[in-house]
Simulated assay, not measured.
Amino acid sequence: MFASKPPLRSVGSDPDYRFTLANERTFLAWLRTGLALLAGAVALASLVHDFGPRPFRIVITGLLLVLSLVVTAGAYVRWDRAERAMREKRPLPTDPLPRIIVSGAAIIIVAAAVLVYLAEFGR
């Protein structure tokens, strides 16, 4: 189903180590973002039991978990694609991950605003 890629070390030539380290730092930043989303989901699910309607909390928790998984998995795909492009001296590929995180965050913000509204005025 998926074509296997050759090992990274066998592709092209080693780029300047500074570019590889910068790519790694970007990867780690995306991982931190994924972990922060996971922490938000865990906090919402386990610490805030009486804030707003339960179904809204469950939906927001689910959205946070899904976004966390997408960002974490996407971080590796993004790192691999960038590293291969640098090794092959190609332009860096465009990446959908920033658009995904912005869209997901916007949806979660709207859902959280509804939750806050319902918690304060829906009683």
Rank of each mutant, 00 (worst) to 15 (best):
residue 66 V to K: 04
residue 63 L to T: 04
residue 42 V to E: 09
residue 61 T to Q: 05
residue 108 I to S: 05
residue 27 F to I: 06
residue 41 A to Q: 06
residue 12 G to I: 07
residue 29 A to D: 10
residue 89 K to H: 10
residue 68 S to Y: 12
residue 109 I to A: 14
residue 78 R to N: 00
residue 77 V to S: 11
residue 27 F to K: 01
residue 81 R to L: 10
residue 54 R to W: 15
residue 31 L to S: 07
residue 94 T to H: 15
residue 57 R to E: 02
residue 53 P to G: 12
residue 17 Y to E: 15
residue 14 D to F: 08
residue 8 L to G: 13
residue 106 A to E: 05
residue 24 E to M: 01
residue 65 L to Y: 04
residue 103 S to T: 05
residue 86 M to D: 04
residue 73 A to P: 05
residue 109 I to C: 09
residue 109 I to Q: 11
residue 29 A to V: 08
residue 80 D to F: 08
residue 80 D to W: 00
residue 91 P to S: 06
residue 31 L to F: 10
residue 7 P to G: 13
residue 17 Y to F: 15
residue 66 V to N: 02
residue 55 P to I: 02
residue 39 A to L: 06
residue 14 D to K: 14
residue 18 R to A: 13
residue 18 R to V: 07
residue 22 A to E: 04
residue 94 T to C: 15
residue 98 P to E: 03
residue 39 A to G: 10
residue 80 D to T: 10
residue 101 I to M: 14
residue 78 R to W: 02
residue 79 W to I: 06
residue 20 T to N: 10
residue 67 L to I: 12
residue 77 V to G: 12
residue 45 A to S: 15
residue 24 E to C: 05
residue 103 S to A: 09
residue 88 E to N: 04
residue 84 R to W: 06
residue 31 L to P: 03
residue 92 L to M: 15
residue 108 I to N: 04
residue 7 P to M: 12
residue 31 L to G: 11
residue 66 V to A: 09
residue 58 I to V: 05
residue 62 G to W: 04
residue 58 I to N: 00
residue 23 N to R: 00
residue 36 A to G: 06
residue 72 T to Y: 06
residue 84 R to H: 00
residue 103 S to M: 03
residue 59 V to Q: 04
residue 50 D to E: 05
residue 17 Y to C: 14
residue 56 F to P: 12
residue 32 R to E: 10
residue 98 P to C: 01
residue 68 S to M: 10
residue 76 Y to I: 12
residue 55 P to N: 07
residue 65 L to T: 02
residue 43 A to I: 07
residue 66 V to T: 03
residue 17 Y to D: 15
residue 38 L to T: 08
residue 51 F to N: 03
residue 49 H to P: 11
residue 86 M to V: 07
residue 104 G to D: 13
residue 26 T to D: 05
residue 59 V to I: 05
residue 19 F to P: 14
residue 24 E to A: 01
residue 95 D to S: 12
residue 54 R to G: 12
residue 76 Y to G: 05
residue 39 A to V: 09
residue 73 A to Q: 09
residue 13 S to F: 08
residue 70 V to A: 09
residue 14 D to Y: 06
residue 73 A to D: 14
residue 39 A to Q: 03
residue 47 L to K: 06
residue 27 F to P: 00
residue 9 R to M: 13
residue 65 L to R: 07
residue 78 R to F: 00
residue 96 P to N: 12
residue 85 A to Y: 00
residue 34 G to K: 03
residue 48 V to C: 15
residue 92 L to T: 13
residue 48 V to L: 15
residue 70 V to I: 08
residue 42 V to S: 10
residue 22 A to M: 11
residue 49 H to R: 07
residue 26 T to L: 03
residue 104 G to H: 13
residue 108 I to M: 10
residue 27 F to G: 01
residue 60 I to C: 00
residue 9 R to K: 13
residue 33 T to G: 14
residue 82 A to H: 08
residue 43 A to L: 11
residue 109 I to P: 08
residue 34 G to A: 11
residue 78 R to P: 03
residue 71 V to K: 09
residue 38 L to Q: 04
residue 83 E to T: 07
residue 39 A to P: 08
residue 58 I to R: 00
residue 77 V to N: 15
residue 89 K to D: 15
residue 99 R to C: 09
residue 47 L to V: 12
residue 99 R to N: 09
residue 16 D to R: 08
residue 41 A to Y: 02
residue 97 L to F: 08
residue 74 G to W: 02
residue 32 R to A: 09
residue 42 V to Y: 04
residue 101 I to F: 10
residue 104 G to C: 13
residue 18 R to K: 10
residue 12 G to M: 07
residue 81 R to S: 08
